[in-house]
């Protein structure tokens, strides 16, 4: 366990292997919540929390499943963990931050069906990370997601005042912006570690 490998995980989670722009996971919330910067930040932080905790919990549970030799239950167990975490977050936010709760609205419940969360839990298992690496990977994957969401929302706020050809209004233009962002991010893959 060296510092270099941790830095590699951080840089690849945020920049080179960004969960949205390079692994194409979590596109629904990217299109849905990136219209305003406020909700983008809120959504990003909520997802970061869920990804971090669920990666760590799923890591532990996977060890148990491997111990009992029932690894085929992985998908069912992971999705249950994620669904309960989101429910917990829902209760906590409703109690302590009603403004954020209201601004996230339906998208809070939709974190359950955000494939970035289940995707990163699966990736942790595939890559064979240890506990510390899992925590760092989960947290910085969430940060990478938040960053892309904020970038998108900034661009879309400006675009809302621009003239867009009728067929492109809404999702098509958002997808094309995401494509251009993804091209920009693929430039980071030149980093060698």
């Amino acid at each position: 366990m060296s510092v270099a490998s941790i830095i590699t995980i951080i840089v690849s989670a945020i920049l080179t292997d960004n969960i949205v722009l390079s692994k194409t996971l979590g596109i629904c919330p990217l299109l849905g919540t990136s219209k305003k910067t406020d909700s983008a930040v809120g959504m990003g932080l909520a997802v970061t929390f869920v990804i971090t905790v669920s990666s760590v919990v799923c890591y532990g549970l996977f060890k148990l499943l491997a111990l009992w030799d029932i690894v085929y239950l992985q998908t069912i167990v992971f999705i249950l963990v994620i669904a309960s975490l989101v429910q917990l977050l829902d209760i906590v936010l409703k109690r302590f931050s009603p403004t954020l709760y209201n601004s996230l609205g339906i998208y809070l419940a939709l974190i359950t069906t955000n494939c970035a969360v289940l995707g990163s839990a699966n990736m942790v298992v595939d890559m064979g990370y240890n506990l510390l690496e899992t925590f760092i990977f989960g947290f910085f994957t969430g940060i990478g997601f938040t960053m892309v969401l904020i970038l998108m929302s900034g661009i879309r706020e400006r675009l809302s005042r621009a003239h867009i050809p009728a067929p492109f209004v809404g999702f098509p233009i958002a997808l094309i912006i995401a494509g251009i962002l993804a091209m920009a991010f693929s430039g980071f893959s030149g980093f060698a570690f």
Binding site: T24, F168, P172, L175, A178, G179, A182, M183, S186
Partner: peptide
């Protein structure tokens, strides 16, 4: 070769969706 990456996927889908909207219009 850019279309084999994620970027190409986003752009192709965006253009196709715009085409679909155009036909519907």
């Amino acid at each position: 070769s850019v279309f084999s990456t994620a970027a190409g996927g986003f752009i192709t889908l965006g253009l196709l969706m715009a085409l679909f909207n155009f036909i519907m219009l």
